[in-house]
Design a protein around this nucleic acid. Structure first.
Lengths: 167, 167
DNA sequence: TTGAATTTTCAAAAAAAAATGAAAGTTTAG
DNA sequence: CTAAACTTTCATTTTTTTTTGAAAATTCAA
């Protein structure tokens, strides 16, 4: 396979994967492009490479920065901003995990705690509801906990996790 | 909080969560409704409760069945089909994990293997591309492996994982 | 300051995804 | 078989999400 085909394929696939993960396609594509760029890259170049508008590039770059997986770079005597991706995969995965936890798991826990607190009496339906949402709360809380512990190591967490799993 | 409010809130929130995870809202809502239903439920009831069309209900129920987290139930002497959700949360999480792995991680690995196989020579860009996609491949493969190991226990995997993490 | 270079914002347009509903298909009791 | 009961399909419509692009805002060198 040619380099340019490989690059294209990688960017497209990363974009498609992003969509499945609730991240928009362009955001994932910009991320892919930055990951494979050895130097930091201007918005202009990104627009050009991905054939997207300035507004789109600007908004999605900001989102990536908010997620903490892309950084700005200022070059000596230049107005223009340059961007580069977090390239340490451990670090990247931890940041994504933390962000998703904050945005998705924490709010879910809040709701589960709330709805599982209804009085347990009355109908079978109510009892069952309380019971199910309570287990769900416990389960999600436990998972959240596990995730926190796993990424706590920071350095080479995935390797360490694997080691623990083997024994 | 009233039971009916709690139920509403749970279904709505589960639906919203689904969207963030690349699962469509209705599918997640049907799943939520089934999880809190003590008895298996007909399509009619689902349509009624969630205010959705027959076609929508039919398609999303099928998707849930494909994922292996909802089952059909046939009642003695009745034409109508009834549905119920997998209620064992360990089992449910394992099924979701397996399905997502199959649909997302495996194809991603295939692409990463492919694109990281370009010849390593020539420009810095090409070298960097090869290097990045190779690390990415290794990382994702490792994560896939860990996930497989974690869910391998089947019974109470989350509890067991947590125990391993503590030591 | 000023103004050119650059980025951000956001209303409108376009694209993508999801939902509808009626017709077609399937199943089974009689 | 037949027909009623029920489910599935899919072209069309609706809703949601994403993208565009031009105007407004910002930044900084001179």
């Amino acid at each position: 396979m040619e380099f340019s085909d490989a690059k294209q394929k990688f960017i497209q696939s990363w974009g498609a994967l992003g969509s499945q993960w609730g991240i928009n396609k362009t955001m994932a594509q910009i991320h892919a492009f930055l990951m494979i760029s050895p130097e930091s890259v201007s918005m202009e170049e990104i627009m050009d490479e991905l054939k997207i508008s300035r507004g789109n590039a600007s908004m999605n770059l900001r989102a990536l920065i908010d997620w903490g997986i892309v950084y700005k770079d200022y070059k000596q005597g230049e107005r223009r901003e340059y961007f580069y991706a977090e390239k340490d995969l451990d670090e990247m995965a931890i940041k994504i995990s933390r962000e998703r936890t904050k945005r998705e798991i924490k709010p879910a826990l809040k709701v589960l705690k709330e709805v599982s607190s209804i009085p347990a009496n009355k109908t079978t339906k109510e009892k069952h509801f309380k019971q199910q949402t309570t287990s769900l709360y416990k389960f999600v809380a436990k998972a959240d906990n596990a995730l926190e512990k796993i990424t706590e190591y920071n350095d080479n967490w995935l390797g360490k996790l694997l080691k623990k799993l083997i024994t």
